Simulated assay, not measured.
Amino acid sequence: MMLKKIPFLNNKKVYTEDDFTLDHIAMIMDGNGRWARKRGLPRVAGHKEGISTVMKVVRAASSRNVKYLTLYAFSTENWKRPKAEVDFILKLPKEFLHVFLPELIENNVRVQAIGDVNNLPAHTREAMAYAIERTKDNTGLQLNFALNYGSRSELLHAMKEVVSDIKEGKLAQEDLTEEHIASYLYTADIPEPDLLIRTGGEKRLSNFLLWQLAYTEFLFTDVLWPDFNEEEFLRAIEEYQQRHRRYGGL
């Protein structure tokens, strides 16, 4: 399918809902450490600066009728980083929500989390649980934070659940379909991403949504996450709308 190209920012167009037909955008927020190093700052300064970028992207997505935005906030591999950096990163959800939760509520944003959240620190779990509860009835953009998320561990967990249900007679092996498997994933109630954006110049998935990204369009940008803004977000959407999505067809 070829979506119509939208006039870009400099044309001063007033955007309407019909201009944006992406249901789900996933983002790998990369480049915080390099952003800080370029400025002679500790790595954690980049992570802190990245908080404001999160809100810029949320505002842009929400105002343009994107239904789901999934941000790769902390991976299962990130535990390998120095403890001080890990501790700092896992305090950021609480800091972000302390500052921006009122705005999220006002703008009808619903907060959710995907990943093995039970193994996160109590302060991170509590902050997320509070935000999820406060926004549960909102009907606008669903903002998914991928926390302690790894796609391989997600798939392993799903397969164990499938095997268990087959053994218990809840599911017949011969009836197992791709749709069944998808229903056991953390993203069971979320459509697959239309577009994946990775900032920071790297061109890999880093164990993010491996099942869900099977037919997603990828966009890699050299812009470091703290420098990413609404204009870059719109540029990514414009690039997406120039592509043909064939899903294996002609």
Rank of each mutant, 00 (worst) to 15 (best):
K12A: 15
E17S: 15
E17Q: 12
D18F: 06
D19C: 05
D19L: 04
F20P: 00
F20H: 08
L22M: 14
L22N: 09
D23V: 03
H24I: 10
H24M: 00
I25N: 05
I25S: 12
M27R: 02
I28S: 03
N32T: 03
G33L: 10
R34H: 06
A36M: 06
A36V: 04
R37G: 00
G40P: 00
R43S: 11
V44Q: 07
H47Q: 12
H47A: 04
G50M: 02
G50V: 03
G50C: 08
I51C: 01
V54C: 04
V57L: 06
R59H: 03
S62M: 04
S62E: 10
S63K: 07
R64S: 07
R64E: 14
V66M: 06
L71S: 04
S75E: 15
K80C: 06
K80Y: 05
R81C: 09
P82M: 14
A84C: 07
A84W: 09
D87G: 03
F88M: 06
F88I: 04
K91Q: 13
K91N: 11
K91G: 15
F96C: 01
F100K: 07
P102N: 10
P102Q: 14
P102A: 14
E103Y: 05
E103G: 01
E106I: 06
N107A: 08
V109K: 00
R110N: 12
R110I: 08
V111A: 13
A113M: 13
A113N: 10
D116Q: 10
D116T: 05
L120W: 03
P121E: 10
A122D: 11
H123Q: 11
H123W: 14
E126A: 13
E126M: 14
Y130A: 13
Y130N: 11
E133W: 01
T139L: 05
L141H: 05
Q142M: 09
L143R: 01
N144S: 07
A146K: 01
Y149P: 00
G150I: 12
R152E: 13
S153K: 13
S153I: 15
E154S: 05
L155Q: 15
L156V: 13
L156G: 02
A158L: 08
M159L: 14
